[in-house]
Structure formats: C-alpha cells, structure tokens
C-alpha cells in the first residue's frame, strides 16, 4: 500500500533584503496511514515552513514553493487548483497551530467557527452542523458544550482554545492532521492534557499526525518516526527508538546530549553545542552543521552530504561519518 503522504524534494525559499533564504531545501519523507511522525528542529531550521508548504500556505511574496512534489492519497497537492486546495485544507487535512488565540477568529463565536468548517466542506445544513459541533466539543473534552458554542475565543483559557482548534481540525474526519508546535504556548500540565487528547483522537479516527516541535521529550512520548531538521534539510530520519538510541547525525547526538534530563543523575556541566545556528543566506557548498560539529573533517566542506542508510532498518542520516559516530555513541551510552 502506498503511503498516505509522500513528500519528494520539497523546496521553499523566501526572498529578503539580504538575499534568498532557502528555508526548506529539498526534503523528502513519507507518512503512513494512522502513523505519528515528528519533525524536530530549532528556530529557523525550516520545520514550520515545510509544513506550511505542504498546505500551500507559504505567503507569496516573499516566499514561494520552488520545487518538489507532495503526493497525498495519490494526488499532487502542488498541482491542485486553489479551489481544490481549499477543499483539502480543513477537509482531508486538519491543522492545529501553535497560538490558538491568533488562529481563531476573535469576532466569531466558537460554534460558528466549527459549523462553518462543516458547512464548507461537508455541505451540512445549520442544524446538522450544530449537532455535530456539540458532539465534537464532547470529543475534545469540553464540558457544557451548549454554553461554550456561544462564547468567543477570548472568553476561553489557552488550553480550552487549543481544544477548540483540535475540534475544528477533526471536524471533517481528516486522514492527516498537521500540528505545528501545538503545545508550546501552554503550561506543562495543560500540554500533557492536549497531547494525550491528540493521541487518543488520532487513534480513534485512524488519522495520521505530523507533529512539529522543538521538544525532544514530546517526540519521545508520542512519535513513531522522527525527522530531524537543520538549516532547511532533513539531516536524520528513522524510527524514534533508533534515532534516540543510536543517532546517526552529530547534530541529533549533540542535541540529545545538551538537554538536562529528569530521568538521569544530575551532570556537573551540560554538554552544549558550540557556536550559533547558521545564517541561511550564507551557506556554502559544504555540510551546514560543519562549523559546530566535533566530528568535522576536511571532506565535510566539499559537499552537503545526502541521506544514506545507517545500520538500522528505515534509519537514514546525512553525514559522511555516520558509521563512526554510531560507534562513538554506543561507547558513550
């Protein structure tokens, strides 16, 4: 069976006063039905731009999708008409964004925002949509739905607003949900509630989930597979277990080592990644992580390494010295 989503060589660039920024630089990955795939990376790594590109939501100008193919259920999303694309967004693909206050319409009631989706995509009449909205609020764990439907976003807490976003995202039984930092703005106990809710709903609806985050713990708790992004490219991808236990890219390894962990003894000092993230307008032809990499050799300057298989099945890394690094981490762990 072909994967639900197949992204091939997707590229996105932004034109700025300082030059063209290749925010997403030829990334490829797949998502299977019902699977949770994480995209991890730091600010500027291109993780959000890559998700917006899937949905063709890159603001143009200054940005544009400069190449690639996005096969969703056999159709190339990049070739659809604007009207067909509107059908897909909020229909077969649901979206949950980071800041629920800015992604909800402040002058429409919660109820109207949910029923609008249903009327647009499923041609539901007002009464059917209203009943479905009540049902959806129940699904996302909001008590007293009749009262909530009449309220406006500012009358709800941050966690509650994110539940509304999720209700809208699942309103049309999507096959895929894209969640961009869905819990970053929330407190830790609310974050846990929202993540558990998304997990149980995707299972119940048999929907696939792409979760974009910078939080390595969230990935470990929820993702089946992980794509690690750095400077616009996927530098490592594979099953969560393999990526966390035998990272094949020095960046992944350094990232995992730099965070203090609650389940390990306290370290005397943390092991940070030296230097600063790269300026994407000034990338040279070599590996973008090279200036911060403790494994860098001369050959790393010559070309940006392509993704290559590591020893584990389905696990890839874009590093010339991937094999040596895998050995080094086994010794370290």
């Amino acid at each position: 069976m072909p994967p639900l989503l197949e992204v091939t060589n997707l590229s996105t660039e932004f034109r700025t006063g300082l030059g063209t920024v290749p925010a997403v630089d030829g990334i490829s990955y797949t998502v299977d039905r019902g699977e949770t795939v994480a995209i991890v990376g730091e600010s500027g790594s291109g993780k959000t731009a890559s998700a917006l590109a899937l949905l063709r939501l890159i603001p143009d100008p200054p940005g544009r999708i400069s190449g690639g193919r996005v096969l969703f259920n056999g159709r190339d999303l990049l070739r659809l008409s604007d009207a067909e694309m509107r059908e897909v967004r909020g229909g077969d693909i649901g979206m949950v964004f980071q800041e629920p206050m800015t992604s909800l319409n402040p002058v429409l009631t919660i109820g109207r925002q949910i029923t609008e989706t249903l009327e647009q995509h499923r041609g539901a009449d007002r009464i059917t949509a209203h009943h479905r909205a009540i049902e959806l609020l129940g699904l996302v764990g909001i008590a007293d739905p009749l009262r909530r439907l009449k309220q406006y976003p500012h009358q709800l807490s941050g966690g509650m607003r994110q539940r509304i976003m999720i209700a809208i995202a699942i309103a049309c039984d999507p096959k895929l949900i894209i969640a961009d930092e869905p819990t970053t703005a929330l407190d830790v106990t609310i974050q846990a509630q929202i993540l558990e809710l998304m997990k149980s709903l995707t299972r119940r609806l048999d929907a696939a989930l792409i979760v974009i985050t910078h939080n390595l713990g969230v990935v470990a708790r929820y993702a089946n597979r992980v794509n690690v992004m750095y400077a616009g490219r996927i530098v490592e991808s594979g099953p969560a277990q393999a990526v966390y236990h035998h990272p094949g890219h020095p960046y992944t390894m350094a990232l995992l080592r730099s965070v203090p962990r609650l389940d390990r003894p306290r370290q005397a000092r943390l092991d940070p990644i030296a230097g600063q993230p790269p300026d994407l307008t000034r990338l040279d032809g070599g590996c973008a992580f090279r200036p911060r990499c403790r494994f860098a050799v001369e050959a790393c300057a010559r070309r940006r390494p392509a993704m290559a298989p590591t020893r584990a099945a389905g696990h890839f890394a874009a590093c010339l010295r991937s094999d040596e690094i895998a050995v080094a981490t086994e010794v370290a762990v």
Partner: peptide
C-alpha cells in the same frame, strides 16, 4: 508529582514504559 509526571523525557523507551494520566482541570 503531577508536574513531574507531565514532563516527557527525551527517551522513547522510558516514555513507552511510563503509564501516564495527565492532571485534570485547569488552574
């Protein structure tokens, strides 16, 4: 205890073993 339980640890194996029920309600 609830705060500590809510923090996910960056290790899929440890997370896989942890049974977890988030704290209900809001502040």
């Amino acid at each position: 205890q609830a705060l500590l339980a809510a923090v996910p640890v960056p290790d899929p194996e440890v997370e896989g073993r942890r049974g977890f029920r988030p704290l209900a309600g809001e502040v």
